[in-house]
Amino acid sequence: MNAFRLAGDMTHLISVLVLLLKIHTIKSCAGISLKTQELYALVFATRYLDIFTDFISLYNTVMKLIFLGSSFSIVWYMRRHKLVQRSYDKDHDTFRHQLLVLPCLILALLIHEQFTFKEVMWTFSIYLEAVAILPQLVLLQRTRNIDNLTGQYVFFLGAYRSLYILNWIYRYFTEPHYVHWITWISGLVQTLLYADFFYYYISSWKNNVKLTLPA
């Protein structure tokens, strides 16, 4: 595993831990989109169908279990935990996430590498992950009052995506037959969605002012 990939996985892990820290210790999910969290739970559930059938490494299996466990527990917290539930900004989190799921499913049925159930589900998860952040970005823009943990959560998620692109470039030049258009294009789209947020996040950090997004 190269350094970009490891750093990507670690920033992904940190983003999840930041979010769990916020939810578990502060008992607040203010500014967090339940729609995005449900989409991530669906992404991991459909991508890791191979978790018990194909063993890659202990690292791989453990990380998959962490991402599955954390995404479903975040959804559980936001839906079922009395205190956390109360802080959920339901009125602003109105993005219709079905509008993302259906096109991704159709696209996966049309564009995939192999027409098998597992492969189409895997491809669907790649497409869905690319756009799953949209409800979260819309919510940030609407509330315009972004606390530090929420800002850091989105920042680390974006960092994870950017590092994965460096990982793909590295692997392309160091491994034979490493060409994966579906993953690359989806990953690039996903990273570009963060560009705007990154711009405001970094300038607020540089000027040492509270992060706000323009309306």
Binding site: D50, M63, W122, R171, H177, Y178, H180, T183
Partner: peptide, 10 residues
């Protein structure tokens, strides 16, 4: 299978 090596990613 080298063609499927992207599957070792998360």
């Amino acid at each position: 299978d080298t063609d499927r090596n992207v599957k070792d990613e998360l």
